[in-house]
Amino acid sequence: MEYRQPAYEDTLLVAGCKRNDRVAQERLYRKYFELAYRICNRYTPQQNDTLAVVNEGFLKIFRHIAEWEPEKGQLGAWIRRILINTALDHIRSLHRSVAHSPLETAVHLQLNEEALDRITADELLKLVRSLPPVMQAVFNLYEVEGYSHKEIAGLMCITESTSRWHLTAAKKKLRNLFREGQSVVSG
């Protein structure tokens, strides 16, 4: 991985945040709020929870800003990782124990292009949000964020086979929800 110099603005914002400068903290919050909201919105089962998770994430960012190492990656990537972990912590707090049997084979979500043309991003988000929180998190981590099952297992404190099970179940449920929605729309 090639080292890239952090943006000058980010360097100044981080320096200010390390000094607990409220203006720098507000600027950092405003600069990364949209990214934070989009990330947390994908993981929270209720839209009402999104802002709470965003704010909890920013509290962690401000508390740990001195730990950011520019040579290990861009500030936005570091913030993104904290926000994803905060959203996962939120999901874990909602569902402390989930027991499922693993399925070893993943079923791919197969929708034809014409069907995808008829669904909006908001409708798709509503379908994903209707999934149980752990299933929703695994789906987002794997399909949206690009994490492997091994990485998901480490992040969520589950086994790789449980991660695969949740992904399979999420895709099956989404297919069924989509079909139900299509029959309601066309019927």
Rank of each mutant, 00 (worst) to 15 (best):
M156C: 14
K60D: 01
Y29W: 15
V14A: 10
A52G: 12
E123P: 05
I65M: 12
T11C: 14
P133S: 13
Q182D: 09
E104F: 12
A36Q: 00
R42K: 14
S101N: 04
L51M: 02
W78Y: 14
A66L: 04
I82S: 11
R118D: 10
V23Y: 09
E56W: 06
D89L: 01
T50M: 13
T168H: 10
H108V: 08
E71R: 10
S101F: 05
Y8C: 08
V14Q: 07
W68V: 10
A106C: 06
G16W: 06
R38K: 12
A87Y: 00
V54Y: 06
C157S: 12
F139W: 13
S163V: 06
W78D: 06
G73N: 04
I61V: 11
E104V: 04
M1T: 03
L116T: 01
V23G: 07
A52I: 04
Y29C: 08
A66C: 04
L51R: 04
M135L: 08
T86D: 02
Y147T: 02
D89W: 00
T44L: 00
L177P: 00
K150Y: 15
R118G: 01
H166M: 15
Y147L: 09
L124D: 05
H90Q: 06
L127Y: 03
P133H: 12
R19I: 02
E180N: 07
V54R: 14
T11E: 12
M1A: 14
A52Y: 12
V54T: 04
L177R: 06
K173C: 03
A115Q: 11
R92F: 01
E9R: 11
V23C: 08
V54S: 02
T44F: 00
N48V: 03
N176K: 15
T86K: 15
R30Y: 13
P132L: 13
Q47W: 04
A15N: 15
T44R: 00
Q46F: 07
V53C: 01
P102L: 11
M135I: 03
Y3E: 04
H108K: 14
A87Q: 00
G73Y: 01
Y3T: 03
M156A: 12
L35G: 02
L83W: 06
N176S: 08
E143F: 06
I84F: 11
Y32L: 09
R19V: 03
Q5A: 04
Q110I: 13
N20K: 11
R96Q: 05
L141W: 02
A153D: 14
E143W: 07
N176P: 05
P133F: 13
E56T: 03
V14I: 08
I152P: 13
K18Q: 15
V53Y: 03
M156N: 15
S130W: 08
L131N: 09
D122T: 00
H166K: 08
Q136P: 02
A115P: 00
Y43L: 14
N176Y: 13
V14M: 07
I65Q: 11
K18H: 04
R22C: 01
Q25P: 01
